[in-house]
Computed example of a mutant assay.
Amino acid sequence: MAVPRGCSECQVSLYGLQYILKEERPHCIKCYETLCCNNCVACHKLIGHTSKDVTFKDLHWHDDCFTCSKCSHPLVNQPFVTKDDMLVCTACYRNQFSAKCSACLRTILPGSKKMEHKGNSWHESCFTCKSCQQPVGTRSFVQKDANNYCLGCYGKHFALQCVHCEKPITTGGVSYYDQPWHKECFVCIGCKQQLAGQRFTSRDDSAYCFDCFCNLFAKKCANCTTPISGIGGSKYISFKQRQWHHDCFNCKRCCVSLVGRDFLSCNEDIFCPDCGKDI
């Protein structure tokens, strides 16, 4: 093979000199390194033509510079991870960045399955009920004193018992007359709708929604016949064992309000004094 006369970039004679072909064009060493070689991201020096160029994600290192940012262990041909754009060997990553199991306190290796809850992590095999030691997996559980319990064990050891169904209350209970109830068990004795968060009242130790209490026990207005609840400070008028809503206590004939005024009664009706003259 004939020696080329000169460098294809600077035209310097290559006779007796080392040169490199790049796309079949001869380059002197200086031009080749200037045009084709990369700088190391670790030491920032040129990776010369005699050095090994290690590449990762469009970045370049000398093979001697391609090391763990924590322990400086060489990473060429070794497994590694990146953390905040830094190279980290798997040992350092496990020690410094991997989650620790809240049960056995050992590192949860990257890629292995882990269970998480409220900022804590467990190996899948360590995520068990404190009482029965059975795996919790994806089942519902209750945490108490930093320990996990399946619903059955929690109910057996800690949970209050609903006075209605006698089953454990694990979440969202209601207290009524100092007794615990499930929300779904605390219902109106009349229509059975849930009362938690709703307006209700009681009679003979039984709870009623507002509508059922009014329909079952409230007196009826002599004028409109709808219940007079008396709940919430609503006003009503009582006269001879009959009751009226405050707004319903009006003259039968002219409809003027008789609240605080004289009136006349005839049979089941009431009249203002003017209208009562004609009775």
Rank of each mutant, 00 (worst) to 15 (best):
P74V: 01
C224M: 03
Y236C: 04
T34Y: 05
S125M: 11
A99T: 01
L216E: 02
V54D: 01
C214D: 06
Y176P: 11
D58L: 11
H27F: 15
Q241E: 14
I169S: 13
R139I: 07
C188I: 14
I189Q: 09
V259T: 06
F141S: 13
P135Y: 00
G173T: 09
D204W: 04
L17V: 05
M115R: 14
C92M: 01
T171L: 11
Q18I: 03
C221S: 02
G152R: 03
L17I: 03
F210S: 00
L195A: 14
D274E: 11
C188W: 11
I47A: 08
S257P: 00
H123R: 07
C221K: 01
F127G: 12
Q194W: 03
R261I: 10
K235D: 14
Q133R: 12
H157P: 02
D84L: 12
Q194I: 10
R94W: 04
C212D: 13
C209N: 04
F200L: 05
K144A: 07
T128K: 08
N77F: 03
K52W: 10
E268A: 01
Q179E: 14
M1I: 12
C209Q: 05
E124K: 15
C221I: 04
S234H: 09
R253W: 01
D205P: 06
P273T: 07
G232F: 05
N120M: 12
R199N: 06
L195P: 02
P74C: 11
Y177D: 04
R139L: 12
Q143S: 04
G232K: 10
D274S: 14
N95W: 00
C31Y: 05
W61Y: 06
F66Q: 00
K156S: 14
S121V: 08
R94L: 14
Q243F: 14
H44Y: 08
V142S: 13
R94I: 03
E184G: 08
F213N: 00
S69H: 07
L35G: 03
K235G: 07
P180A: 15
W122V: 07
F213G: 00
F127R: 01
S234G: 14
Q134D: 09
H73V: 10
S112Q: 15
S234R: 15
V81T: 15
L14I: 03
K277M: 02
Y176V: 01
L105F: 11
C254I: 01
Q96C: 09
I47G: 12
W122D: 12
C132D: 13
D247A: 08
D84A: 13
K57Y: 00
V54Y: 07
L35N: 09
N267Q: 12
V54F: 09
V259F: 05
K144D: 07
C251K: 01
N250E: 10
K167Q: 13
C65M: 01
D53K: 09
Q133F: 03
